[in-house]
Write a protein that binds this DNA or RNA. Sequence first.
DNA 1: CTTTTTTCGTTAGCCGCCTAACTATTCGCC
DNA 2: GGCGAATAGTTAGGCGGCTAACGAAAAAAG
Lengths: 190, 190
Amino acid sequence: MPLLMLKDLPRYECLLEASREFPDLDPSATEVFLHLLRAGDEAFRVVEAHLAQHEITQGGFSVLMALWGQCQREGRELPLSPAALAERTGVTRATMTGLVDTLERDGLVRRAPDREDRRMMTVELTPRGERKLLKLLPDHFRQMAWLMAPLSETERKTFVRLLTKLLRRAGENDGRPAPETAVAAVVAGR
Amino acid sequence: MPLLMLKDLPRYECLLEASREFPDLDPSATEVFLHLLRAGDEAFRVVEAHLAQHEITQGGFSVLMALWGQCQREGRELPLSPAALAERTGVTRATMTGLVDTLERDGLVRRAPDREDRRMMTVELTPRGERKLLKLLPDHFRQMAWLMAPLSETERKTFVRLLTKLLRRAGENDGRPAPETAVAAVVAGR
DNA sequence: CTTTTTTCGTTAGCCGCCTAACTATTCGCC
DNA sequence: GGCGAATAGTTAGGCGGCTAACGAAAAAAG
């Protein structure tokens, strides 16, 4: 999620001024939005760069976490199907094929055909994958803790509350026929 | 910035429990981090999907905004170099080449050699590009306003304050020799 | 005035993400 | 039992991000 607008966030006065030209521009909403995207991107890059030191990508890490979280909960080594992994990590099945390809090439994960349903595959952590995960997790946790260190416990609670509100709102968007505007209709009728 | 962890955010109790196994895991820090990335991603996807209805990508939009913001401020039509665009939008020059390629192919932007410095190019909005931007901006502004509607003005101020704290913290990361750990040295010595 | 260093834009190649289409298999309904 | 509908995984092709390397041009150093 790189930018969506400019690297240097606009000052509030500029937004206020622009809102005179564009009545639809809500200055405070825009300010929050831009800060949110920028902060999310920065936080993402910090962790991505850190994971890169362990020679693993963000996507690969997500898959390992999904597999490992699974085996933690279920006692031991319940492999998951690519479709289940895609669902849990929020990518398409096609994307998951590529991610598992890479992880399998690196020997962190193993594919095997499902015994009961011959359409399906199972994906599970290899011992090497588990070792790698256990080795990088403490660093990853420290990284998150370092990043959040400037926030007090109270601020963190508030932060999570606000983020949850937004998350819920964004979730309403699924299947929504676009905001009150004729554009969607025009595009659809193309 | 897709996932970095699981789509369904872990409950706080699970984080607490995990922190017993991993002393480095700060439950509240992790919770904020995961919510931030998820919320940023969701907000990004909402707007990206909306821009797609106008047949423009997030990257292309950023470039148009940079060019337009420039001509707004400078009176009229100061073109920018690819390097300046890259700097302002936070991508590499190589990426900017691709973005400008696409925009030029679509006729929204025009390249021309710089008269004074023969290494450089200039990129400027075409009339079509400006029309497109002016047409989609109101929708874009409405989208942001809709997304932030659940937050009161007070909450927005708080939100921006917290996000700014994080932004500053993430900025400290540039050039930092990784958090107190031996991993970086190991990798570097490889 | 030459030589070295820096800067510019581009290219090549990798990865992750998407959609659309395809094959194979299973499910559900007659 | 058989046949259409749904599902699993993959493939193909596109875009956007990155790094590394390049040639051309300008700037700095000598």
